[in-house]
Design a protein around this nucleic acid. Sequence first.
DNA 1: CGTCGCTTTGATTTACCTCAACCTTGGTGG
DNA 2: CCACCAAGGTTGAGGTAAATCAAAGCGACG
Lengths: 250, 250
Amino acid sequence: MLSQATMSQPHAAVRQFATVKPRASLNSLFGGQPIETFEPGTAVFWEGDEARHVFEVVEGVLRVFRILSDGRRVITGFLYPGDLLGVSLKEQYLYTAEAVTRTKLRRYEHGRFQDEINRSPELRPQLFACLCDEMAAAQDQMVLLARKSAEERVASFLLVIARRLLGDERQPVIEIPMTRLDMADYLGLTIETVSRTMTRLTNCGVIAPSSRHAMVVRKLGKLAVLAGEGDADDKCAAGFGGVQQAVWPN
Amino acid sequence: MLSQATMSQPHAAVRQFATVKPRASLNSLFGGQPIETFEPGTAVFWEGDEARHVFEVVEGVLRVFRILSDGRRVITGFLYPGDLLGVSLKEQYLYTAEAVTRTKLRRYEHGRFQDEINRSPELRPQLFACLCDEMAAAQDQMVLLARKSAEERVASFLLVIARRLLGDERQPVIEIPMTRLDMADYLGLTIETVSRTMTRLTNCGVIAPSSRHAMVVRKLGKLAVLAGEGDADDKCAAGFGGVQQAVWPN
DNA sequence: CGTCGCTTTGATTTACCTCAACCTTGGTGG
DNA sequence: CCACCAAGGTTGAGGTAAATCAAAGCGACG
């Protein structure tokens, strides 16, 4: 039973873009809980808060971030419906979670959550899978931040979103609920650079803005190439199945 | 029992600098296995290989990395004795693991490992804790890569090593088994920048080189401040004398 | 003692940041 | 219904940290 002893450490969370979410039964765990709503910009919890609960995102988008002492902000991930937030063995949350859009969550008491997980041989592997997906996403992000150019970063970001929304459409319309500042803090760039890069992508016909927070991806293949990862172009991601998942057409 | 179904996905790995390693019994799982030795530069497995085994690092240091199609390399982590490698539900390894120094490993068949974990209510939380630690480390790394200056990156790196080796000594002697290129690929910098930065740290008296792969940390506190995170005496870091380098008094 | 791999140091370039102005959009109230 | 405003976004000009290009040092080893 995930004994006290071993649970006596703080942090982490299954927050992910864990793109695929076959966690039906895991999520059903939260079924009985009441739904809480958070307005845009509202914090669900702060870095350093005692980690009392695990949350399931029912609706909306969240950002998860840390702030350095001098104010620099780093968004380590965005959370979408179906994702879990606050899973970890740490005593305190290691980051702040805030609603990007109006968000609905279900809350589960932390200890109880661990008990349930531990009790159920069915839930356990699901949670484990979530953690693995999140880890994989974190590694992709490290690659992006360590070595990709501004253009590759933005392209990668759009690509992940496009693939999540619809696996295969030729010209998917994607929603970008977050602001440019959010994107910048997630991609390790400035707003200006993000803006300029998106303008360039638009001029190249790769994307076409619909509204400020939505756009059409006109050339998914091109986007994949621009994103870096030996993605589209080379004979299909040489090994690498690219953590993500997805299969892109053209 | 971590059924096939749910295990049907590739990747990840508990590789970490999971600084604390109270995973005595987890590691004891590998006790019966024969020890395998890998010479420096040798790969334990490659990105894309079928993920058949989980490894325990008995001795030595490993680097775990991915390579972009055009050759850019990103080291996502280093592994030390006690760490686990290859833990994940993915079908293939998502990265390559190579020995930095002569390394000794114990190997455990993947499915069997999962079974053991699933069977033991004692091991499970330990593994979970490892994953959480690794996730926490990955997030620190994202912060480092997204927003820290070259100097902060190098300082952070040295600090983590110093802290792992000895929690508190005033002037710890630390070993840096990896090359400058490894450091650069881990920190998202170039060799030249790493080299210059270390030279500067030396000139400031923060560190003092012993041999090429070992040095004395003369001012742990200073190093913590330079590393960014409101770390050591945070209220001290607050002022932050201009992120960069600048000139500090002794 | 010469070669090879790694590291350091120097000069120059550049991608991205910073600073600053301007434009868009959506909400509000007159 | 439109004028105004604030917040977010775009665009431009110039600065800079780190990359790139280019040479030497420095050990280790045969």
